[in-house]
Design a protein around this nucleic acid. Sequence first.
DNA 1: GATGAATGAGAGTTCATTCAT
DNA 2: TATGAATGAACTCTCATTCAT
Lengths: 210, 210, 210, 210
Amino acid sequence: MGIRERKERERERRRQQIMVAAKRVFTEKGFGKATMEDIAKEAELSPGTLYLYFKNKDELYASLSLRILQYLTIRLEHVNAEPLEDAHDRLTALKEAMFDVYEFDPLILINMFHMQSSETLKNLSPQLLKEIQTLSRNSLQVMAGIFEEGIQRKMFVDKHPTAVADILWSLFSGIVLWETSKKIINDEKNFLKETFDTAFDIFSHGILRH
Amino acid sequence: MGIRERKERERERRRQQIMVAAKRVFTEKGFGKATMEDIAKEAELSPGTLYLYFKNKDELYASLSLRILQYLTIRLEHVNAEPLEDAHDRLTALKEAMFDVYEFDPLILINMFHMQSSETLKNLSPQLLKEIQTLSRNSLQVMAGIFEEGIQRKMFVDKHPTAVADILWSLFSGIVLWETSKKIINDEKNFLKETFDTAFDIFSHGILRH
Amino acid sequence: MGIRERKERERERRRQQIMVAAKRVFTEKGFGKATMEDIAKEAELSPGTLYLYFKNKDELYASLSLRILQYLTIRLEHVNAEPLEDAHDRLTALKEAMFDVYEFDPLILINMFHMQSSETLKNLSPQLLKEIQTLSRNSLQVMAGIFEEGIQRKMFVDKHPTAVADILWSLFSGIVLWETSKKIINDEKNFLKETFDTAFDIFSHGILRH
Amino acid sequence: MGIRERKERERERRRQQIMVAAKRVFTEKGFGKATMEDIAKEAELSPGTLYLYFKNKDELYASLSLRILQYLTIRLEHVNAEPLEDAHDRLTALKEAMFDVYEFDPLILINMFHMQSSETLKNLSPQLLKEIQTLSRNSLQVMAGIFEEGIQRKMFVDKHPTAVADILWSLFSGIVLWETSKKIINDEKNFLKETFDTAFDIFSHGILRH
DNA sequence: GATGAATGAGAGTTCATTCAT
DNA sequence: TATGAATGAACTCTCATTCAT
């Protein structure tokens, strides 16, 4: 391994270290209240160091989104790679992939939403934004592919596959968001796989032909 | 009408005026970047005045959530009040109610999510928090009631009604969130009733017995 | 006096108060080392208040230049207004005007130089920049006018009046700069009117026909 | 040449390399905005290396002044070395020397002014400060010598030679400063030898007896 | 000697909040 | 009740400087 390569790897490790810390702080304090100093402290680094790896606060947060999208993409590709006979099995695999993503970082969607403000967008490097866009389009296309296959096999009801993918993604996001909200506002018990299972049940039942 | 009562009404009018302005500013600038001065300007009031009606910024934003929950509650009660024979019709009425809520304030869920941070919660008066909790429980119970009815009539599949209500609400929230995100990040076309219709189609299809 | 007018006057007073403080701090600490907090403390205001009156640090400093140019303009107009028979007298009046400007704010030229950096220029409002440009052009034109008159009367040697004005201004600036430098570096005695007198003597001698 | 001496020469070469880079960066970015990293990059060295050759940033900049003073000193000695009959020719030679200095580094005076702040002075090693003081005194004395000679020969008007030297130096500095300012603020054409010629014309005319 | 990643103090600036009017 | 100028704590971000390699 060349010295250059090792350095690059070292650099990536640091980036991950910072992102892990950022995720933790963000989860605890919420978006607006988390400061760069909090994150630096959590990562056991100095504030200045954060800026060696991320252009600014917004870009650090956006990178969290990118990270989760990368994870999702990999998981989805696995789903697609397996030669499954049954479209129903595909749905189950899809559900599991999404649940994994949730466990990887429950706050993914909140993160992603933060990027909506056009003020925030201005602070992102075009390159990062592009990557996020590409990955999120990609993921949805993979999902849409699964639905298309099911429709062609006459196993799924005839809906526009892209729309169905959007809806599944929305359902997933919505559950995460809502369960998180409930947890804090109503101080109820945590997000349950159960809710997700039920939701998927209904969804599957809803798109399968009978 | 007593003088006290008139004053109270006047006070309420002002509160609404401020909330309308806040909603507008928030929609335009995004959550983190909207300042109290922006809101004051939009409401044609001075910053100081805002604090005569809202304890602080967090409470002002939380009040927006309360407002939308109140609207939702009223709409749901109307749905329930109508003596509908068919559970399927109920679902349709429910869909329409939720779409109205969306049109009343598309950013409701983002608003509501903002309250998740425990830091924010500390800034809210217990009374306001209580009201929000009560109203949101209420709404979900009304929804759950509709599903329970459907289940008892053997029209809906047998799922826990509360869970189903949660899921519908999540689906709704998720769509709003996701469509808004897409609009900004991918610069795609705006949220469409169509998406919502399709989602509801699938959902209905998913919970109806066949 | 209307309430609006009184407020405007009050506002101007505050601006002056801040500029006086800024001048003092700048003189003592030098440009780069003077902080906004220093200035705020000197003005017995809070840092935030400074930003109610000046957009940013660069603009505050640029305003100091504007102020001195305004003073110079007034003084030059007085010189021109007096019906002097003799071009030589005009020169003397000019000298005195410039010396007054020096006494009003010895650091004028350093201030003005600070604006050279294009980075700094970017931070200035176009309006302020325009005002500074206009005033400095104006002043030089008035000076040039004096020289032109002298040349037409065959009292001065035949040089381009604008160039001569530039040179006089340069001489003046240079002396201020150099004497200030000497004072600090060599710890010598302060700037002397004497130096200025001698310089002006030579200059006058140099442009007068013999 | 001993090994010690060779090392010393090597060290001096590096210092020059850094100073050349510093001059370039400073010219481009302006004083306040140029960073040590910029300079390191321009010199194709690492930031840390700069500190092996210069105690700190202020001292690096002060060294630039020292460098130009050294150049000026050499040039002036040449002027004095030539056995010129005519004091007027001496003046011309002087003018050329100063113009060379300007071409060597137009920003010299700005550099030199930077040292005025007492805060900056604190950061300089006494030795460096001493060298600068000595050299600048020296240069002025050489100039003064030229004037003294002219006065003794009854070619120049009878002014204090040191004061005349100061004034010439001020005139020179002022022109550089002012032409640079004009270029940036008014976006006018660049510093012209012409201005300098005219200025020197007037100056010469002013000190020559008629 | 040279590096350059890391530091951390401190800068400019913002903005929720207060309070004299 | 309404104001809005003033506050000042807290923020993000910069950069001269250090030090382990």
